[in-house]
Amino acid sequence: MQFYVYSRYGFEATRPHEVPHVVISITSSLDDQARIRANEQCRGVLRLAFADAEVASEIIPEDALFTPEHARRIWDFVVAHRDEIERIIVHCDAGMSRSPAVAAALARALNGDDAEFFGGRYVPNPRVYRLVLECATAQASRP
């Protein structure tokens, strides 16, 4: 499985991918959705909204954080489409933390390797990475 990570601007400016793929679109608010160009190769879009933070604070309430429910939605979405796609495209506002965390956890769960998302230009959000990987591991171990 191939993974592409974008900032929102980069994603909206990029031509649609010409191989079967899904898009995980991450924003900070459900009211603020990225434009996703129509494309016959796109097999599905999952839109999520959560803050780019690891813990709640005076500015970011607990209910704005990434949750196990978000992780389950991501994993269920990917599993539902994985036999028909070659690529998973993930974007968030800056393309530096939330989207690489999702891509890294999925790459680890599906391909066994998340190295490309660590130690370079990305700084994956630890909370997002951990919860997606925990969900994928738990689901994979079920009969």
Rank of each mutant, 00 (worst) to 15 (best):
Thr14Met: 01
Asp63Cys: 11
Arg127Lys: 15
Ala34Trp: 08
Val5Ile: 02
Ala13Phe: 06
Val22Glu: 03
Arg108Asp: 14
Glu134Gly: 09
Asp52Pro: 07
Arg98Ser: 04
Ile88Asn: 11
Ile60Asn: 15
Val19Pro: 06
Arg127Cys: 12
Phe118Met: 14
Asp32Thr: 02
His21Cys: 13
His81Val: 05
Arg82Gly: 09
Arg73Val: 11
Ala101His: 03
Asp32Met: 06
Ala13Asn: 01
Ile26Val: 15
Ala94Lys: 07
Arg8Cys: 01
Val90Glu: 10
Pro61Cys: 10
Arg43Gly: 03
Glu69Val: 14
Ile26Arg: 04
Ile89Tyr: 04
Tyr129Gly: 11
Ala104Lys: 03
Arg35Cys: 07
Leu131Val: 11
Arg87Val: 06
Pro126Ser: 09
Pro143Val: 02
Val102Ile: 15
His81Glu: 00
Val79Asn: 12
Pro68Lys: 15
Cys42Asn: 13
Val102His: 08
Ile26Ser: 05
Met96His: 11
Val79Tyr: 11
Ala56Gln: 14
Glu86Gly: 13
Asp63Lys: 03
Ser57Trp: 05
His21Asp: 05
Arg47Ala: 14
Ala105Asn: 08
Ala140Cys: 08
Pro20Gly: 13
Ser141His: 08
Ser25Ile: 04
Gly112Asp: 10
Arg87Asp: 01
Gly95Leu: 01
Leu48Pro: 12
Asp93Glu: 08
Leu133Trp: 01
Arg87Tyr: 05
Pro68Leu: 13
Ala34Leu: 06
Met1Tyr: 03
Arg98Leu: 00
Ala80Thr: 09
Val23Lys: 03
Gln139Ala: 04
Asp114Val: 08
Val78Asn: 11
Asp76Val: 00
Tyr122Asn: 11
Thr14Trp: 03
Asp93Trp: 05
Arg15Phe: 05
Val45Leu: 03
Arg37Asn: 07
Gly44Val: 03
Val22Cys: 04
Ala115Met: 08
Val128Lys: 08
Arg35Tyr: 01
Val78Ser: 10
Pro68Ser: 15
Asn125Cys: 07
Asp63Gly: 11
Val78Trp: 13
Glu116Phe: 07
Ala94Trp: 03
Asp114Tyr: 00
Ile89Pro: 00
Ala140Asp: 13
Tyr9Leu: 13
